Amino acid sequence: MKKYFDILRKHVLTGTSYMIPFIVAGGVLFSIAIMFNDSASVPTEGFLGDIATIGQVGLKLFVPILGGYIAFSIADRPGLAPGLIGAYLAQEVNAGFLGGILAGFIAGNVVKQLKKIQLPISLKSLGTIFLYPIGGTLITGLIIICFIGTPIALFIDHLTKWLSNLNQVDKIPLGAILGGMTAFDMGGPINKVATLFAQTKVGTFPYLMGGVGVAICTPSIGMGLATLLSPKKYSAEERQAGKGSLLMGCVGITEGAIPFATSDPIRVIPSICIGAIVGNISAFMMGVLNHAPWGGLIVLPIVEGKLAYLFSILLGSTITAIMVNLLKKKQIKEEIKEEEFEIEFDEL
């Protein structure tokens, strides 16, 4: 079982290593555009609008890159196109980065099985560049559209209706629900349901965005802070991603925590959820009102209860950082050395 999970982790880490530059470049550029926009929102015109567009492209590409290189790790070059296209389709059906990971594994294993089919010698040269990519893309795409897209759409619909009936629920359980949902998949379907619920009520119940605005940024800030507090527990790539994650969190981009969640979901996802829950409840209980449908420090000028808002962000982020660092027992350096030895041994 341990060997099986080590293999899975190796494939996910391969996808993550290729994904990080996209999410950092896109996230930082998008953050800069929002940060320098006067209205603390996404600019759509002028030079800042162009920067925001470039950043959004980077943020939209990272899920396909993640899925594509997971499939590449499993099935080599023939898996790349099915993985990229499958993960893109997963993103289009609002499956988020978790859907991208699933698409990568589906594509990689589909192509791996196709490669076992004995082809005539005359067709072998066509397998890598023609038959395997086309067959893998078709099968993976149909699985994503038919068996993943529809259930996710139904799930989102039911989740939205359920959440809409919680208006009168006490603030502590409501804050826990919204905080956990916002952090759980970092921009995925569950996150979108929670944030949209609060955003649509910003005019009538601004306290909802007061809490959700905190939960939006604590995953990214918390993981960035974690890399600063215990740098030896993170790879060089993750430490660099941590710097970008801090900036993304400050301007309300939850996706900054995704590189950490993909490489170590068992420790990272519970940590960011607990931090977001505590931060959200804290903001609710201290009466923070956020009149913007956004989160992070960028909306501070239009927040009522600024000190409480800042305290809640600091509290949630610190809890995330401390919790994830306590859970991370192994030094990344040692793990990398072991992987490098195995690669060199295989090559010999």
Results as ranks from 00 to 15, higher is better:
47 F>V: 10
42 V>C: 01
56 Q>G: 14
73 S>Q: 13
52 A>R: 04
75 A>E: 12
26 G>Q: 12
63 V>E: 06
26 G>F: 11
33 A>G: 12
40 A>K: 14
68 G>E: 10
42 V>R: 05
26 G>E: 09
73 S>L: 08
58 G>N: 04
22 F>K: 01
70 I>L: 05
72 F>T: 10
56 Q>N: 15
26 G>M: 03
49 G>T: 06
40 A>E: 11
43 P>I: 00
57 V>T: 10
37 N>F: 12
30 F>K: 08
64 P>Q: 02
34 I>R: 08
48 L>H: 09
38 D>I: 06
41 S>V: 02
42 V>G: 00
32 I>C: 06
70 I>D: 10
73 S>D: 15
65 I>F: 01
58 G>K: 01
69 Y>K: 00
32 I>T: 07
75 A>G: 15
40 A>W: 13
40 A>Q: 14
52 A>P: 12
41 S>E: 09
28 V>Y: 10
63 V>R: 10
31 S>G: 14
32 I>H: 11
33 A>N: 13
55 G>Q: 01
42 V>E: 10
37 N>D: 15
62 F>M: 02
59 L>Y: 00
62 F>E: 01
49 G>D: 08
22 F>V: 00
36 F>R: 08
25 A>L: 14
24 V>A: 08
41 S>Q: 13
37 N>R: 05
36 F>T: 04
51 I>K: 07
43 P>M: 02
60 K>P: 01
40 A>L: 06
60 K>R: 10
28 V>C: 00
47 F>S: 06
26 G>C: 07
27 G>V: 05
53 T>Q: 08
51 I>Q: 02
45 E>W: 13
38 D>E: 14
21 P>T: 02
41 S>A: 10
42 V>A: 03
41 S>C: 01
47 F>I: 10
26 G>W: 12
54 I>D: 00
31 S>I: 02
74 I>M: 08
75 A>K: 13
28 V>F: 13
44 T>H: 15
32 I>D: 08
48 L>G: 07
68 G>S: 03
75 A>L: 09
49 G>H: 11
74 I>G: 09
29 L>S: 11
61 L>D: 03
34 I>P: 08
55 G>L: 00
32 I>Q: 10
60 K>W: 13
62 F>N: 04
50 D>C: 02
35 M>N: 07
73 S>F: 14
34 I>Y: 02
23 I>P: 13
49 G>R: 04
35 M>G: 05
48 L>F: 12
36 F>Q: 05
59 L>I: 00
63 V>F: 09
53 T>Y: 05
33 A>T: 12
